[in-house]
Each structure stands twice: as structure tokens, then as C-alpha cells.
Amino acid sequence: MSERPVVQLIDVRKSYGAQQVLKGVNLAIMEGKTTVIVGGSGQGKSQIIKHILGLVRPDSGSVMVFGKEISRVSMRELKEIRTNFGVLFQNAALFDSMTVFDNVALPLRERTKMPEEEIAKVVNEKLAMMDVEGTNDKYPAQLSGGMRKRVGLARALVLDPKIIFFDEPTTGLDVAKSNEIYRVFSRTQTQLGYTAVIVSHDVPKIFKLADYVALLHDGVIQACLTPEEFQLSDDPVIKEFVETTMGPLYSSEMEV
């Protein structure tokens, strides 16, 4: 099957005051694939996601989602495009005054006319898929960081979206919890076949999930390559990133 882009960023530029965060970002997200955006802290990785979600408008350039320029569509069209999105925010962004069940049920209650019994069935199914069944009546503050992320993922997946965005899904979690999130992610993607965009610092572990890795450096996507190509790239910026995050491939002298 030929790959086609569902999201395209073309020469996207964005400044906040005097600080230019994105300096001409070009990126294509392929349908059904997992694209991981990596890069140093404060480079504007989350900004790319916010542009695609239509939460931030670019100063110039265009963001095409399903062939539509997201900064130029009407509110109604934007809402319609967003029905295809599922987002797992960095801190899960669960509604803290609602129980876990109500959090996951919210998109179903607000966007569908599903009867309450069916909503309960779908919510319990999704919570079981994330291994957090039995937490229905708890509030987000009563959950651990890993559980909150999994509930966030359950909420993001509850309407079977076409594209899922993960903003640093494992930040603040220990290795075991990160592995759990990856395991859940990998399993759900196999089951549901969604397109995924992941912003992550967790290199090299995140490469195992990626079909494509894009490096954001100095406000520009340096390259979008498969994990193998990325690790073997001769591009000096990518090479430096790989060596800094994974260590020199053939020498350990620098790792002191």
C-alpha cells in the first residue's frame, strides 16, 4: 500500500515576541505510521503538535490536515477535523473534578448520542485495554503518574480517532512505567491502526515504536527518516544528536 500524508507542514514559521521558535518547518505525517519528533528541550516540538491541532496559528506557512489548511478553515470545519484527533497531553490534562469514568466518558457524552449503558460498556472496555480497570470512581489526583497517562490514553482513544498525538508520553515516569506505556501504545496501535505523532525525549527507546523519526533542531526539521537511517545518518546535526543521546556507536571514550 502506498503511503500518503495525512498532515503536512509547509514552511511553518512562528515567533513569540523576539524569539523565533519555528523557522520554516517542513514535515509530512504518513497515514497509519508512527512519526516521532525528537529534539532538545525548548526547541518547539510541542509547538508543532499545537499547530497541527489548530491551537496555535502559524505566522507564515501552512499546516494541511486531511488536505485542508487548518488555520484557514471555519470553526465548524475545525471542529469536524478535530473529531479525528485524539490527544495525550504531557500531563494527561484529565479533568480533575471528574472521576476516571466521567473523564473517559466525556467525549462520548458530548459528541455522540450513545445511551448511558453503551457508554459504560465502551469506557470499561477502553479502561481494560489500558490495564486501569477498577479505577472508575477514582479522581485523577488519586492516581499515579503512569495510571493518569493510561487514563489519558483511554480518553484519547475512546472515539477511535484517526490520528493520535502524544506529547512526551513518558516524561516523569520511571523505566518500568515507561515500558508499560509503550507496551499499551504498541498493542493499541496494532488493534486500532491509527496514525501516531509522538513528541519524545526518550531516545533511543522511542525508536522501537517509530516508523519515522524527525529531528527538530534550530527551529527546522533537519530530516525525517526511518530509525535505522536516522541512526546511521551522516548529517552532522543528526550524528551529533544520536551521539549525545545514545552515545558514540563504536567508542565509549566520551561516556565518562
Binding site: F89, E110, R111
Partner: peptide, 22 residues
């Protein structure tokens, strides 16, 4: 304000739920 800074309002937007209505 807390909903805004903890990205709960962004989450509503992304779920295509209008924060004004909700």
C-alpha cells in the same frame, strides 16, 4: 484559570468540545 494552565481547556478543544458551551 487552573483548567487553562493544566491544558484541560486545550483538551476540550482537541476533543472538539466547545469550552464555551461546556
Amino acid at each position: 484559570g487552573v483548567m487553562r494552565i493544566s491544558e484541560q481547556i486545550d483538551a476540550l478543544d482537541c476533543m472538539a468540545i466547545d469550552p464555551h458551551k461546556y
